[in-house]
């Protein structure tokens, strides 16, 4: 049963990656233009530093992609490149490769997104469980309206508000970037502190919004779970409130919450991209923003593909972990 389940999950993952790559390949071609030449020419017409290498680049790309060959040959070559994560050069940052640029940005995003997602999921789930629990202190109910409000705000709007209050009005925290201009990346206390100070606002704007969502979701699930027969029977068993809360209510209510996490990853990521842009945080989102602005087709493709693969992997991990939480799952067909 397990192997079956795993195989199906991996299959879906491969399918998604393939679809993403294919979409990436065909959609730009739908506009009927030669993607490389069009982009390069446009870049050239804007003038500037890339002009000198233009002809060489067009040759380079045409040779590499075989743009004179039939479409299906191009497609096969493309799939081959993509499967090796080979996205060639960035147009706007020639001669740097797309991979180099992405590799530089990824740690920023992974740390920001990883920390905030884990934090907001944990805090939100716990808060939601307590909000539904009759034994929790009464003042906790006061948290409901702010959670509703936060939940309704998009990430980037809260980001702007936080930026206005903490960075502009009170000037407590830096406003832009991943570290102060002029600071040299090094593993010194000073630099780490500087990075943290820059990360607080972007992180906060994600954590606050997401926590509200997780708390409300968990609260709903807890209310349903507390009405289940096994909770009534647990009480008739004379179990302590703590046991009933943790092992019977939270333990079951967290299952749909985990499923929701897998579904929400895409949305969290979309929101985080915008937060990065607002704060000029040097992660993948900001790179993407610049790439779009400068029409850097290959960089856009590289980022989009990388992100989809990363998300697929994250979803896959959640899917594989889920049967450990819910023993019924390996029997169920999806």
């Amino acid at each position: 049963m397990r192997a079956d389940y795993l195989a199906r999950r991996v299959g879906v993952f491969v399918l998604i990656v393939w679809l993403a790559a294919t979409l990436n390949f065909f959609l730009p071609r739908l506009s009927g233009q030669d993607p490389v030449r069009a982009t390069l020419l446009q870049q050239a017409s804007l003038g500037g530093h890339v002009q000198m290498g233009l002809e060489a680049m067009v040759k380079e790309y045409e040779g590499r992609f075989g743009l004179d060959k039939p479409l299906w040959r191009q497609y096969v070559t493309y799939l081959g490149d993509v499967s090796r994560f080979n996205f060639n050069y960035s147009i706007s940052n020639y001669p740097r490769t797309v991979n180099e640029i992405i590799a530089e940005a990824i740690p920023w995003t992974v740390v920001l997104l990883g920390t905030t997602t884990i934090l907001s999921f944990t805090i939100g789930t716990l808060l939601g469980a307590l909000l539904a629990w009759p034994g929790a202190p009464r003042w906790m109910r006061l948290l409901m309206p702010p959670l509703w409000a936060l939940h309704a705000i998009p990430f980037f709007l809260l980001g702007l508000i936080l930026m206005y209050v903490f960075a502009f009005r009170f000037q407590l925290l830096p406003m832009f970037g991943g570290y102060s201009p002029g600071a040299f990346p090094a593993l010194t206390l000073r630099f780490v502190g500087d990075v943290l100070a820059h990360a607080i606002l972007p992180a906060l704007s994600i954590v606050l919004v997401a926590t509200g969502g997780w708390a409300l979701g968990m609260r709903g699930m807890m209310v349903t779970t507390m009405g289940e027969d096994y909770v009534t029977f647990a009480e008739a068993k004379g179990l302590t409130r703590l046991t009933i809360f943790l092992r019977y209510c939270v333990r079951n209510a967290i299952l749909p919450q985990t499923t929701a996490l897998a579904l929400a990853l895409g949305n969290i990521l979309s929101g985080a991209v915008l937060v990065e842009v607002i704060f000029g945080f040097p992660g993948v989102g900001t790179i993407l923003f610049h790439a779009i602005r400068e029409n850097d087709h290959f960089l856009i493709q590289g980022i989009v593909f990388t992100v989809i693969v990363a998300l697929g992997v994250a979803t896959l991990i959640l899917d594989v972990v889920y049967p450990l939480l819910d023993p019924r799952i390996s029997y169920r067909r999806t």
């Binding site: 979409l23 739908l30 895409g266 979309s270 087709h297 856009i300 989009v304």
Partner: peptide
Amino acid sequence: IGLTVPGLLVLIIIAVSL
């Protein structure tokens, strides 16, 4: 499958192309 893919990114591909 559509729901697993991050919506914004797909929209970006579409919007960039058009």
